[in-house]
Amino acid sequence: MNIAMHLERAAAFERALARLDPVEDTELFVVFLMRAGTHRVNAALHALGLTSGVMGGAAGKIGDLNHTYKPKLDVALPPAMQQAFKHLSLLENLRPEFVRGPRVLDHAMADACRAAYAGIRAHTDSILGAGVTP
């Protein structure tokens, strides 16, 4: 997907998140934060020229990441992307216990999730530039 579509998709997940409570709706809250974050990370990687927005990849570059670890990205990441990956990994690592497992977020963990997503936005926005939309 191209950068604009990634950002539209991120915004779509953000709109859905606004309807959800992190404790009552733990499972979709975690998944949708992860999805929105993944789209922003993909947009930033495309903007840096590290991956391709063409489905399946092009010009020797891989296409979109499904997760920070899949497919494997064998390039050196700038510090801002390293931080974005760290925040996104935090969200990804919640899945075994909170999405596929029996646990439910408490309010402190919900705040940590929101902070992780805010970190992803801040670091990817710094790459995408002031004109980033939506």
Partner: peptide
């Protein structure tokens, strides 16, 4: 729990999220 969460989403404006959540 997930079905209850899905019921909070809009079929019109959250269609993509409905599909994703349904898989979960």
């Amino acid at each position: 729990r997930i079905v209850a969460s899905l019921e909070k989403l809009s079929l019109e404006s959250d269609a993509m999220c409905v599909i994703d959540g349904a898989v979960i």
